[in-house]
Computed example of a mutant assay.
Amino acid sequence: MKIIHKGLADYAPTFEAMKAFNAARDENTEDELWVVEHPPVFTQGLAGKPEHLLFGSDIPVVQIDRGGQITYHGPGQLVVYTMIDFKRRKKSVRHIVSALENSIIATLAEYGITAAADPKRPGVYIGEQKIASLGLRIKNGSVYHGLALNVNMDLTPFHQINPCGYAGMEMTQIADWVQPCPTLDEVAGKLTAHLSTQLTPKETES
């Protein structure tokens, strides 16, 4: 699995690049993980409802084709897009979601943070606070979009929305639990290692 570090990148062209990659790939295309950090942006998924944007601001809203509702991306948040062949895995969507959640949980455990998934709602939580969001799209037998893990960012824009459609959802980040906070690059290295392990098809699955 190839890991591509894209640095700080605007959301809209990254979204277009994801769609183009997915449309062009074939059964021989190597799977990729795209590691990205975005300037401030709200993204509204296919199930998104306008009322979950509580009030306007100068932060742009981009309509996209992943599942889920509205969320926020901004500097200090680690975003990983999972550009993977779904057919190659012979697994359910739930298996892919669990692989992402388990990778985040394992990464946080390396910093002494106890986190968990919630069977009733996607993402990873520390108690009732959400630290990571998930949103996927499966098209042409391939998966794109991915996950966002809050590392060391300004969380106040989340107050402008109902995060992922949940009113009053409290958000948290690694910096609230670990000081000094690790760098985004350090966390990315740990997370992509876990994702590569969780998402690489085993020989018995091929």
Rank of each mutant, 00 (worst) to 15 (best):
1 M>A: 05
2 K>R: 14
3 I>A: 06
5 H>T: 10
6 K>Y: 13
6 K>C: 13
6 K>G: 03
8 L>A: 05
10 D>H: 14
11 Y>N: 13
11 Y>D: 13
12 A>I: 07
12 A>S: 10
16 E>R: 12
18 M>T: 08
20 A>M: 06
22 N>Q: 12
23 A>D: 15
25 R>E: 09
26 D>A: 10
26 D>S: 10
27 E>K: 15
27 E>I: 07
29 T>C: 02
29 T>V: 04
37 E>W: 00
41 V>W: 05
42 F>T: 00
44 Q>F: 13
44 Q>I: 03
47 A>P: 07
49 K>S: 11
53 L>K: 13
53 L>C: 05
54 L>P: 07
54 L>K: 15
55 F>Q: 09
62 V>P: 02
63 Q>F: 05
65 D>N: 14
65 D>W: 01
66 R>N: 03
67 G>V: 05
68 G>Y: 03
69 Q>H: 11
69 Q>G: 04
72 Y>L: 04
72 Y>C: 00
77 Q>E: 07
78 L>D: 04
79 V>S: 00
80 V>S: 01
83 M>A: 10
84 I>P: 02
85 D>G: 05
86 F>W: 14
87 K>C: 08
88 R>Y: 00
91 K>D: 07
97 V>C: 04
98 S>H: 11
98 S>L: 11
99 A>I: 02
100 L>K: 01
100 L>H: 03
101 E>P: 02
102 N>G: 10
102 N>A: 08
104 I>L: 04
107 T>V: 04
111 Y>E: 07
111 Y>I: 00
111 Y>C: 00
112 G>H: 05
112 G>A: 03
112 G>T: 07
114 T>L: 11
115 A>S: 14
117 A>L: 01
117 A>Y: 00
118 D>H: 10
120 K>S: 15
121 R>H: 14
121 R>D: 11
124 V>P: 02
124 V>I: 08
126 I>L: 09
127 G>S: 08
128 E>K: 11
129 Q>V: 02
131 I>L: 02
133 S>A: 15
137 R>C: 12
138 I>Y: 11
148 A>I: 02
150 N>C: 12
150 N>R: 11
152 N>C: 13
154 D>Y: 01
155 L>K: 08
156 T>A: 10
156 T>W: 12
160 Q>W: 07
161 I>E: 03
162 N>P: 07
166 Y>C: 01
167 A>F: 07
169 M>K: 10
172 T>G: 02
174 I>N: 01
176 D>I: 02
181 C>R: 05
184 L>G: 00
184 L>Y: 00
185 D>A: 15
186 E>W: 06
186 E>H: 14
189 G>K: 11
189 G>Y: 01
190 K>D: 03
191 L>E: 04
195 L>R: 06
198 Q>I: 06
198 Q>P: 02
199 L>T: 03
199 L>D: 05
200 T>R: 01
200 T>Q: 07
201 P>E: 09
204 T>P: 00
